[in-house]
Amino acid sequence: MATVDATTESGKAAAPHPAPAGGGGGGGWCSVAELALRALLFAVTLAALVVLATAKQTVLFPVPQLRIAVPMASKFQDSPALIYLLVALCVTCLYSLLTALASLRLISASASTAKTLFLLLLLDVFYAAVMASATGSAGGVAWIGLKGNTHTRWSKICDTYGKFCRHIGSSVILALIASIILVILAVLNAHSLYRRSR
């Protein structure tokens, strides 16, 4: 560890190219923005998780012949795409919490290690892919629920299960915001890693 620190110090001394984008104090604003984005990512994924997990609605369907009403429950476990979204949101929420701590350490440490940046960048790209695929599949099923598909005779369900649909739709939109945040994080990290190259 001591040799790594010595190498980074000498590297900083020997590579005197300043920040191209006018960042005061090296990567100061960059890492602060990164920490803020990670906190935002944690908040967004946690909100999406709660909204998705509480999406449950029971509707009474009247049956006139029998003079009774049959309760029909709709919950998110009914669709594999929504289960996948739940798992992806869980994993990303945990990841954002852990990496927020890591980037906090990056700010507090005087010499930010490029190895941590590199690992964070790789993981950011990976999680961006996971969140994008989860958002795509859950958005697809939510779209069919909202609009229906006349060609395959899949009827829309959002006129029946209104509250359920609102929960799912908000969760998908929050997941979309989370994947955009992950892409921005990856670009930021790549920027601060690229600044030290060449």
Binding site: P80, A128, S133
Partner: peptide
Amino acid sequence: LLALALLFSAVGAAAEFGILGERGNSHVR
């Protein structure tokens, strides 16, 4: 990076539609 996100979300949406076509969903008929 953008192409990666676009491609993964498109694959997710299309695969989800395909699985729905292959298995159906009995809960929402």
